[in-house]
C-alpha cells in the first residue's frame, strides 16, 4: 500500500542510462511480442462490439463467430427500450453520484477528525474502520437485507446508496487520513491563530489541499459503485429500480440468443466506466495504488 502522496506521478520514470543505449534489435523483439499480445487482449472487446452492431438475422444465419455482413443499431434500440437499459443507466448514475459524494464527504470528515485532533484510540478506530471494508460482503448480506426490510427501505435506491456508503467509508477514511496527516502542521496552526474553527479549517484548508486524493478516490469509487452487483441484488427486488449490472443479467435472461441485444447492453454498460477511465486515467491509476484492496 503506497502512501497516497507518493503515487501521483505514475507515468514518469527517469530513464536509466544503461537502458537507453540498449541495442535496436531488442526494441524490435519487444514490439513483435507486444503487438500480437495487445491485439489478443483487446480482441474480446472488439468482437463483442462487432456483434452489437450486427442484425439478428445476420447472427442467426451466419453464426456468432462470423465476420459481420450487416450493420444496424437494432440491438441498441431494443436494449434501451424493451430491455430498459436506459432506465437502469439512470438508476446507476443516480446511485453512483449520490453514493460517491456522500461517502467521500463523510470519510473526509472522519479522516479530518482523526488526523488533526487527539482522539483517544484513533489508530484503533482507523484500523477498525478499514477492517470493516475488507470484510467479505457475504458476511453482511443477509442481515443487511433484513435491516433494510425492518426500516421499510428494502427495494429502494436509497437503501442501495446507504449500504454502499456504509461499506465504502472505512477504506476512504483510511486513505484520506494518510493524506491529511501529510499536510504540514504549520498550515493548521496559522489558521488556528487567525481564529478559524474546525469547520472553517476543514472547508477552507483541508478540503482544497486534499483535492488530489479526493480526485483519485472519486475515480475509483465511481467505478466500484457503478460496477457493483452483489449489493444491488441484495437490497433490490423490483426491476424498475435495478442498476445497470442487475438489469444486464435480466436482459440476458429475457433476450436469450438475441446476442446483438445482449452485446449492445454490455457495451452500453461498459461505455460510462470506459469514459471515466480515459478521462481520468492518471487519477484512476493512482487511486488503484492507494486502493490496493479491490
Amino acid at each position: 500500500m503506497a502512501a497516497p502522496t507518493a503515487v501521483g506521478d505514475t507515468a514518469s520514470v527517469p530513464p536509466s542510462p544503461a537502458r537507453t543505449q540498449a541495442p535496436r534489435k531488442r526494441g524490435w523483439v519487444f514490439h513483435a511480442v507486444m503487438v500480437p499480445f495487445t491485439l489478443l487482449w483487446v480482441a474480446p472487446m472488439a468482437f463483442v462490439l462487432l456483434i452489437a452492431f450486427r442484425t439478428f438475422d445476420d447472427i442467426a444465419s451466419r453464426g456468432l463467430g462470423a465476420l459481420p455482413a450487416s450493420f444496424s443499431l437494432d440491438g441498441f434500440t431494443t436494449a434501451l427500450q424493451d430491455g430498459s437499459i436506459g432506465r437502469a443507466l439512470a438508476n446507476s448514475a443516480l446511485v453512483t453520484v449520490v453514493g460517491v459524494v456522500t461517502t467521500l464527504f463523510l470519510a473526509s470528515l472522519a479522516a479530518f477528525a482523526l488526523s488533526r485532533y487527539h482522539i483517544p484510540f484513533r489508530r484503533t478506530i482507523l484500523l477498525g474502520m478499514l477492517a470493516g471494508n475488507l470484510l467479505p460482503p457475504q458476511i453482511l448480506l443477509i442481515p443487511v437485507a433484513k435491516i433494510t426490510e425492518s426500516l421499510g427501505i428494502y427495494d429502494s435506491l436509497f437503501a442501495l446508496i446507504v449500504v454502499q456508503v456504509g461499506f465504502g467509508l472505512g477504506f476512504y477514511t483510511f486513505v484520506l487520513y494518510g493524506f491529511m496527516r501529510a499536510i504540514p502542521t504549520e498550515v493548521f496552526e496559522a489558521a488556528r491563530v487567525d481564529g478559524a474553527g474546525p469547520t472553517r479549517i476543514y472547508a477552507r484548508i483541508v478540503m482544497p489541499l486534499s483535492r488530489p486524493a479526493l480526485a483519485a478516490l472519486a475515480a475509483l469509487a465511481t467505478t466500484w459503485i457503478f460496477n457493483d452487483l452483489i449489493w444491488a441484488v441484495t437490497v433490490l427486488r423490483t426491476e424498475d429500480k435495478f442498476p445497470i449490472t442487475a438489469a444486464l443479467l435480466n436482459l440476458q435472461g429475457g433476450f436469450v440468443s438475441n446476442w446483438n441485444v445482449v452485446a449492445s447492453g454490455a457495451v452500453l454498460a461498459a461505455v460510462p466506466t470506459a469514459i471515466v477511465f480515459f478521462a481520468f486515467q492518471k487519477h484512476f491509476v493512482s487511486g488503484l495504488l492507494v486502493g490496493a484492496n479491490k
Binding site: A113, M129, V165, G166, G170
Partner: peptide, 16 residues
Amino acid sequence: FLLIPLAIELAWVFWP
C-alpha cells in the same frame, strides 16, 4: 465529524 461516519459504519457493517 468522527461519530457520524463511525455510527453509519457500525450500523451497516459491524452490526450486520
